[in-house]
Design a binder for these strands. Structure first.
Lengths: 132, 132
DNA sequence: CGGTTAATTAACCACAAAGTAAATTACAAG
DNA sequence: CTTGTAATTTACTTTGTGGTTAATTAACCG
């Protein structure tokens, strides 16, 4: 795939692989354990392949002991990816502020139409953008 | 590709597309303008395809006026992607802290070896992880 | 040794992605 | 109405991805 960022994003572009990472974020695990939740959807070799993709992207590390491969999360590529995204954060934050501002203006206009002049404007909550 | 997050990450997994987004982060632009930096590497239709991928992922919006398509950045999918990454931030931040702690311990041990007991330990800067 | 468990490799298939060249649409303007 | 410009669509090629089943490696255990 070439450059590291591309490899990272490509690895993240699959729900199975993201689920595996999520699972690994609360502790390491071996392949069969990691595979279990998916074995109704796909075969074991399929999971092995996903793990290989994650490994190539540096998102996990496999260490073998006896017949088990223990997989653990490596966060460095996630850091890199987040760093890249951060450059856009200021853009959407300024958009948020503009949005809020316009909404406030709009509300002010509405209030003026309905009850022209004279009650104090209640300031709405800003940035209550989303409930996860 | 299915779910929105996968589509977003897949769209970001290409340097050309990331460059296009970067370009759009300082203002909208039409297709030929956007394509210019890449025309030595690839054809115009190739760029059109990349734009289509970005559009399908909701990362850009195209509006036509006359024979020009003006493309502009849409940050919402980036927000979603960042939100997803954020759940890992605490992991690597705690790793950073552990790292720093171990390093301090290590340094303390070194000091003890070299100049056994009696000068006050100067506290090093924590979290000077990386210069971009 | 022989059997079982863990995991990968090999060989294959279907389909999507990234690119090309060439044709086509859409509009503006002489 | 023809010509030039902007951009897309079509048709095709190559390569990569995600999945399969079957075979293979590797280690442990009785």
């Amino acid at each position: 795939m070439g450059d590291p960022l591309s490899t990272t994003f490509a690895a993240l572009a699959d729900p199975t692989r993201r689920a595996i990472l999520a699972r690994l974020s609360n502790g390491e695990s071996n392949v069969t354990e990691l595979a279990r939740p998916f074995l109704e959807t796909m075969s074991l070799p399929a999971v092995t392949k996903h793990l290989k993709v994650l490994e190539n992207a540096g998102l996990i590390q496999k260490t073998k002991s006896a017949q088990w491969r223990t997989c653990s999360l490596r966060v460095d590529p996630l850091r890199e990816a987040t760093d890249w995204m951060e450059q856009y954060r200021q853009i959407w934050e300024s958009l948020d502020r503009l949005d809020d501002y316009l909404k406030e203006l709009q509300e002010a206009v509405q209030r003026d139409k309905e009850e022209p002049r004279d009650l104090p404007k209640p300031k709405g909550k800003r940035h209550a953008r989303k409930a996860k």
